[in-house]
Amino acid sequence: MLTYLLAFILFAVGLYSVINKRNLIKIIMGIIIMEHAVNAFLILIGYRLSGEAPILEEGMAISEFVNTAMDPLPQALVITSIVISLGVVALMVAIAVRLYQHYGTFDITEIRKLRG
């Protein structure tokens, strides 16, 4: 249970950064930390004590493999999620760069003031 709690604390750090920071780059970093925390939590759920990676080798018995391998389903979900997060980071950085070009700052309170 302590291990799940650590992943939750990592998520909370990211949430703190998103809600409480004024710098646009810090907000993007908070979102990245939250993505990391969720990925770590999904992998922790699929962990099996003294298990093996879900990759078959030659001469391995399938019945034994089913009882010792990690859960492959969360891993398959997380591997797509990581690559999507990279695309989303590129999109967010593009938005931030355009905002900087328009307003000359990354401060979101300034951006809010100079509306229009």
């Binding site: 990925n39 992998i43 298990g51 891993q75 990581i82």
Partner: peptide, 16 residues
């Protein structure tokens, strides 16, 4: 991730 038995994800995570 490597210790958790997910080498695919460890590779992807490093490069990303």
């Amino acid at each position: 991730f490597l210790w958790l038995g997910a080498p695919d994800i460890a590779i992807t995570q490093v490069v990303v």
